[in-house]
Amino acid sequence: MTILSPVSSADEVEMLVESGAGELYCGLVPPEWIRAYSGAVWLNRRSPAGANLSRLDDLALLVSRAHARGVPVFLTLNAPVYIESQLTYLADLARQAVGECGIDGLIVSDTALLLTLADTGLGPRLHVSSVASALNSEAVRFYRDLGVGRVILPRGLSVEEVGRISAAVGGAVPLEAFVLYDGCAFEEGLCHTLHHHRVGAFCVDLARWDPTFERTDGAAPGPGEAARLEAHFARHREWIWHLNACGATVSSGGMPLGACGVCAMPAFRRFGVHAVKIAGRQASPLRKLLGLRLVRAVLARMETGASDEDVVQWAVRARGMPETCASGVMCYYRGPFTARRENAGV
């Protein structure tokens, strides 16, 4: 099992590789894209500012530094949808990224772009983005049939569901699963909103707007019922806050908080999941580094033969917020992460 880390600058490569990144992924938004579409149409899943490189030269430098350390680099072309004229542009950009910069893989969600790139012989280099919502074995087979080299599973799956997909198709196409940062309250590929700086994430906005409750039978909720609903949606608002990096806070030990799935790593390794992914190309170098160290430390314990329970207990201690971990509000996947639980649902 290898660790896929985000990178947004050539200057971060050495730090990330030395800290355990086995693979890197980044984004590129050339100036001509911004000129054509402004900030209203994103080239990939992240805002052009902060999370992306802007020049092919910078990409080539980043890749050369990673390759010098034996680490592959993948490029995100994972906007949910592209139009016909963009497909031509992106095919050319992909050709340059692979041919001139040495990019090893392309992370793509739109089937039109997947097919366009597969037609140019890039099929084995294509990784299906989590934005494509491959939530079941048949969907993974659909993408495998297109000739892709990897499928990234959405965070909305349970550990049991990842196990079932892996058992059904994992041998035919390598799988990747998220284990740290940037949770989604909704299914990522089925959220058709912008995280534009003028509005922010829809889920965060939604949770902020006061709810009113209506019963389907037309009766008004009783006082106790209304209070219970209000308390429940207040907890829902707290859950969304936790998914979104807990307001960019850190634990008492300095560990960045936010969505996490490291406790599922032992299960993922048994399932044969090829890579575990850390989200957050837009994160600061420090946040990237600390997250990577956590994931690497968990993997190291697994490699020394520690039991699942020991790995999970260690991870919870390392996160430095045991009560929050116990509450489940930061978890992509819910535990307990024992073999008995996983097998029960498969």
């Binding site: 054509a36 579409y37 402004s38 209203a40 149409v41 949808v81 592209y82 139009i83 039109a112 097919l115």
Partner: peptide
Amino acid sequence: APGDALSALRQPSLAAPVS
């Protein structure tokens, strides 16, 4: 919206020949 943005927002990739 500036440039080709609005035009891009109005077209589905499902209409592309490859789709």
